[in-house]
């Protein structure tokens, strides 16, 4: 799995960090998403999918085939 994030779409809601803190963080100044693991380990992939679905700005894209 490969994650890409759209920083311009990101609204800094931080929902992804609440769900998958191992994979996502937020910038200190404006809350925009910081991708910690672009290719998450297998045990984190379920919560990453949940983060992508819950993201209120639809700013997380997953390539499941990568």
């Amino acid at each position: 799995m490969k994650i890409t994030v759209d920083e311009e779409k990101c609204c800094g809601a931080g929902q992804c960090v609440l769900i998958a803190p191992e994979v996502f963080d937020q910038r200190d100044d404006d809350g925009i998403v910081v991708l910690l693991e672009a290719e998450p380990a297998a045990e984190h992939q379920d919560v990453v999918r949940e983060s992508a679905s819950v993201c209120p700005a639809a700013a997380i894209h997953l390539d499941e085939k990568a």
Partner: peptide
């Protein structure tokens, strides 16, 4: 207020 990351931590 202009502190999204810190607000989340205080949640």
């Amino acid at each position: 207020w202009k502190m999204p990351r810190q607000a989340r931590l205080h949640r």
